[in-house]
Amino acid sequence: MFKYFFVVFCLSLFIRQGLALWCYECVSTQPGCGTQFNWLFHWTKICPETDDVCVKIIEQRSDETIITRSCLSSLRAIRTDIPADHYEGCRPAAKDVHLANYVNNSIKELDIYRNYYDKTTWCFCFLDNWCNSSPSSNAHVYLIIGTSLISLVYMF
C-alpha cells in the first residue's frame, strides 16, 4: 500500500508542476555555484511566468569570474543589459547608453555604470528543466527518473 502512495505522490509532483520551468537560483559566491556546479547544495526555483527562460550570467574581469543563475523574470527589474534575443544559447550583454546618466553619486565603489566587468555573457535556455547548471550535473534528473521507473515496476 505504501508503494502505491509513493508512486501517486511522485506523479502528482510532476503533473502539478509539469508545465512550469525549473531553474537554479544562486550566485557563484555561494558554495557549489561556481564553474563546477554542485546540485546538492542548491534547490530549484519554479519560474513564475509561463514564457520564462532560465538564465546564466557570466561576468568576467581579468581572472575574476562571477556566475549568476536565475529565471529571466527575476532579473528584469534589476538588470538593464539583457540582450533582446532570448533564444537558446549565449550572447554578449546589451549596451545601455542611458544607464546612470542622471546619477550624481560620490561613492566610487558602486557600479552604477556597469563598467566594472570587461565581459558579460548571458546564456539562455528553456527546453529542459535545470538547464542553467553546468553540463555535467544532470545526474539528479536520471536519479528521479530511475526511482520513478523502479517504483512503477514494483507496482505492477
Rank of each mutant, 00 (worst) to 15 (best):
101 N>M: 12
75 L>V: 03
138 N>K: 14
129 N>H: 15
76 R>Q: 15
86 H>G: 00
113 Y>F: 11
148 S>K: 02
154 Y>V: 08
92 P>H: 05
82 I>G: 09
115 N>T: 11
116 Y>D: 04
145 I>R: 13
69 R>G: 02
76 R>Y: 04
152 L>G: 05
95 K>A: 05
98 H>G: 08
85 D>A: 01
116 Y>S: 02
84 A>T: 15
98 H>S: 14
95 K>T: 14
98 H>F: 14
115 N>V: 08
73 S>P: 02
117 Y>S: 03
89 G>E: 04
124 F>M: 04
112 I>Q: 06
145 I>T: 10
86 H>T: 13
73 S>V: 06
147 T>P: 00
105 N>S: 15
100 A>R: 11
107 I>W: 07
129 N>R: 13
118 D>N: 12
149 L>C: 14
104 N>R: 12
136 S>C: 01
123 C>H: 12
108 K>Y: 09
91 R>Q: 13
113 Y>L: 12
71 C>K: 00
123 C>K: 12
135 P>F: 14
105 N>T: 10
106 S>R: 14
110 L>Q: 13
97 V>L: 13
73 S>I: 05
109 E>F: 15
110 L>Y: 15
152 L>C: 08
138 N>Q: 10
91 R>Y: 04
66 I>A: 05
145 I>Y: 11
154 Y>D: 01
77 A>V: 04
136 S>H: 12
75 L>S: 07
113 Y>A: 06
81 D>R: 06
98 H>L: 15
127 L>M: 09
132 N>F: 10
147 T>L: 13
109 E>T: 15
144 I>P: 00
81 D>E: 04
146 G>M: 11
73 S>D: 03
95 K>P: 00
79 R>N: 04
103 V>F: 13
